[in-house]
Design a protein around this nucleic acid. Structure first.
Lengths: 340, 340
DNA sequence: ACTGGCACTCGCAACGTGTGAGTGCCAGTC
DNA sequence: GACTGGCACTCACACGTTGCGAGTGCCAGT
């Protein structure tokens, strides 16, 4: 087990390295943090820390930098989360006040998080509670195309385009719409597909294939999985620190545009509302080397709707990122459960 | 006026420089393109071209690179647009087939364009024809929050959250909704705001402020300007060639995340359906130096709905970009006018 | 009008070198 | 035993020097 002073030394090394990006030596360590001992003593401690694998020297006669193991110890035991500064708190409140709709709320959140942490921020769309159907609208886009809109009681609005074989006049369309509504309104979205089976058969006046297509579109719209969508923001922050990622930058961006990577990244942490940290190689996810992820679930106490977090270099300001992620997750959770 | 051979030389310089990223000298010029004369002759031509300002030498005894003026001449007179290769044509067709809704269509388009041109692709949302109101839905999200959904005949679906002061029970909400629908269905979206004036007054059974809030939300949703939204894709391409932009990369990404920059960029070219090119400093837009924009409007013959294009380094493959932009614009125009 | 030849110019990569930050170790002190 | 000052040692890195080669401009010759 590590000595109290050695832990202080590790904490100091992490702090300094995060700020300066440069290997930190024994001398600056004692003069910047009041450790009360001489550089030589610190050197001994550092030798121990290196033996134990918490820090490493990039080459002989350079300072030390924290290893992944060192960061891990840091976030697990050494970090003290200071509360948000009033100005930050105010920034969050004004930024997230009065979102105009769900998209807007998510959009603002991700921007805010990127701005607060100066990292790449990622927000997963909340999986709005599967609730009951409120209304189904069917509108005609062109001769052979109709748009289906499904509005759920929870406020979800999903749409889908269906190609149909026959031209539909306004009256038939209206009738189809009314029948669908009569059939579905109030029923749980999970039952939609089921209720629609055979829908085409019982209305012989319209061509079957057409009705089938429309029914399929309605079913698809009702079961669309929005929680597979993620949005991100703060690419400029990523670019600013790109030299911390061993990878060439375009690889990183390729990985980003591949939504799956982000989803996997978020998926790897268990869905709880506390803040989790993945450090460096702990996430096996290729494409991002030397990257850490700070992530938290958001939602109500008993139900985690989705996750949000930031991605940055292993060498990042963990305390700041953790408090920001936590605070934003809490706010967004409140907004989103309140709003639907 | 420029000699025919000098034009050939300029064309060759542009072609080579675009491929190699390196100043091109007289020797490689004659051996790669069959110009039928010796390097010395070419050197004389190059001297003329330099005098006229079409090319420049980064320093003594280096090859020449095209100036913006050179590129301008190239795209205006020297470029020959070869038709799309069958495989490209096929790629477009499969990629853009059967979009599931408007978002999906735009999303796919921007990805496709980025992939085809290997540049940053930008697509502006089409301004769907202002049409008549089809249906208005009002659902209750929480005690003091309602969601308003406006569906237009054209297939536009807009939503808005309204905060209300009083709690609304289901029946009143249903009644409000019915009244709104009776009032608005079939009326042009441009008249919505007008028709709603005084809406709060004539229904004394519900608190006025609440009705006003809902009416305002409906009006806002109906008049939302979707055409101010742009989406982009292909950031990895941008990162790959970032050293061509004098700017440090993070500035570029900051500019990107500021949607306004892209909108201005698109806005600077007149809204026609043919392909326009802005080269280097021609676009005064700060933030992107050494950048060119290839852009085209899309829509029907008589109505340009919005614009799309690519952004890349001044030194980009203009012919390829131009054909790709043109083709994609044409396809998207067809899809989007067909679909809404 | 074009070409071969030649002197000239620089950017750039390769090499050598000196400097300084940082270390490990050890003998001495409290 | 824990800490400290001192000292020899090691590299990374910044800096000046140098040589090379690509490319040019010019000119005399065809």
């Amino acid at each position: 087990m590590l000595d109290e002073r050695k832990r202080a030394v590790l904490r100091a090394i992490v702090a300094d390295y995060v700020r300066s990006r440069e290997p930190v030596g024994s001398k600056v360590l004692v003069e910047r943090h009041q450790l009360g001992v001489s550089p030589a003593t610190i050197r001994n401690d550092m030798a121990i820390l290196e033996e134990e694998g918490y820090i490493a020297a990039p080459h002989t006669s350079a300072g030390r930098i924290p290893t992944d193991k060192g960061y891990r110890l840091f976030v697990d035991q050494l970090v003290e989360l200071r509360p948000l500064s009033p100005s930050e708190r105010r920034a969050i409140q004004t930024f997230l006040a009065e979102p105009v709709d769900l998209d807007d709320a998510v959009e603002r959140t991700v921007r805010l998080l990127a701005q607060l942490t100066k990292q790449l921020a990622v927000v997963q769309y909340p999986s709005l509670s599967r609730s009951t159907v409120r209304h189904v609208e069917v509108v005609c886009l062109s001769a052979r195309r109709v748009l289906v809109v499904v509005i759920a009681e929870s406020g979800r609005v999903d749409q889908r385009i269906a190609d149909v074989d026959t031209e539909l006049d306004q009256e038939t369309l209206a009738e189809v719409r009314d029948r669908i509504n009569r059939l579905l309104v109030g029923c749980d979205v999970s039952e939609v597909a089921q209720r629609l089976t055979g829908f085409a058969d019982v209305h012989p006046e319209v061509e079957q294939a057409t009705l089938t297509a429309i029914a399929a579109a309605v079913a698809e719209a009702a079961t669309e999985r929005r929680e597979d969508r993620v949005v991100y923001s703060g690419t400029a922050n990523l670019a600013r620190e790109w030299d911390d990622f061993g990878n060439s930058l375009d690889r990183v961006f390729e990985a980003l545009e591949e939504q799956m990577v982000l989803l996997r990244l978020m998926g790897e942490v268990s869905a709880t509302r506390d803040v989790r940290v993945l450090i460096g190689n702990e996430n096996v996810d290729s494409g991002l080397t030397n990257a850490s992820v700070v992530v938290s679930g958001y939602g109500t106490d008993d139900l985690v709707l989705a996750k949000l977090g930031v991605v940055g270099p292993t060498r990042m300001d963990y305390p700041a990122a953790m408090t920001a992620v936590q605070a934003v997750a809490r706010y967004l959770g409140r907004i989103v459960t309140d709003a639907g």
